[in-house]
Design a protein around this nucleic acid. Structure first.
Lengths: 166, 166
DNA sequence: CCACGATAGTCGGACATCCTAGTAATGACC
DNA sequence: GGTCATTACTAGGATGTCCGACTATCGTGG
């Protein structure tokens, strides 16, 4: 027996009855659900390739690097994730043989990560797979995709600014 | 040295140069980042109250229940999370004394969860706190919040329909 | 040239999420 | 009434994320 209503809209109605304006609550909840949904779709498509979306993002970032190798700190900065998350994902990619890490001779605090040949091969196949399924957001028209991205960017930019001030 | 560019826009540019239309990739990535950002904000505000946003959502759902108690399966359905996630969160809330669980006399497979007095108290204070910070999405105007919610709902509804067909 | 703050990365712990696989109870159908 | 598919929940394991704390290194200022 499928739900005959949208759970978030239902929650928003109840919220409005009892507490007040539901728009912020509705958006926060929508973002959480949308992420869950999109990542689940992406991970399902990437699973045959042996990676997750988090790992895919790292592989892609490495492939876009001009020099071929990227310090872990820069990965965290670009993907906006915590340093420990980078270490975690790089650990797994290294164990899979998709990424190699080596110390930066110029600054021995740094670890440089780079794609292995196998990593490049996996990345290529994975890119084809997730491009074919529109990154899990093909239910929106390209125009809607752009609108949604633009709205979410407001959050990102505001957060980045707050972080920089700190 | 703060980033002087938006990492997702930068990734989208590189994507476009090398692979093709970046809108879907940009949106998927934006959703992932936005969720991370909003949940981190929410969790930070909820931490003094001893809960996370996931737990808050459960408490709120219980408080909205007419009968006061809700079977775990219904919680998973409304929050669109896996049954094992519900068990996990209810376990923690029970250990904290914010929720009580008791078997449903009418169907002994079911476990009914309900708010304790302390749970209701925490919920009230937590609601005040996160309402005051606009659920972490106050960087968007109310109008923008509504637009973004409406766009993300398209994903939700499409996914729900796909699930029902299966 | 050395102390000390800043930076890079890692370790251990907490959380939430999923999946696979089980157990228990219900209900439908013969 | 009995068998069996379905439903509800739980157990164990994997992931990815964060935070706090720690070590190693760099570099700036005295």
């Amino acid at each position: 027996m499928p739900l005959d209503f949208d759970p978030i809209d239902r929650a928003a109605e109840l919220w409005e009855e009892r507490i007040g304006d539901p728009e912020a609550m509705r958006l926060a909840t929508s973002i959480v659900r949308a992420q869950q949904l999109v990542v689940t779709r992406l991970d399902a498509v990437l699973r045959p390739h042996g990676i997750t979306f988090a790992r895919y993002e790292v592989l892609r970032l490495l492939s876009f690097s001009r020099r071929g190798s990227v310090p872990l700190s820069k990965i965290g900065e670009r993907l906006m994730v915590h340093p420990t998350s980078v270490t975690n994902v790089i650990d797994r990619l290294t164990a899979q043989g998709l990424v190699s890490r080596e110390p930066d001779p110029a600054d021995r605090r740094r670890i440089l990560a780079s794609l292995t040949d196998e990593g490049a091969t996996v990345l290529e196949a994975a890119t084809e797979a997730i491009t074919a399924m529109d990154f899990g957001v093909g239910d929106l028209t390209p125009e809607q995709q752009r609108e949604a991205s633009d709205l979410l960017r407001i959050l990102r930019v505001a957060d980045q600014a707050a972080t920089d001030r700190a």
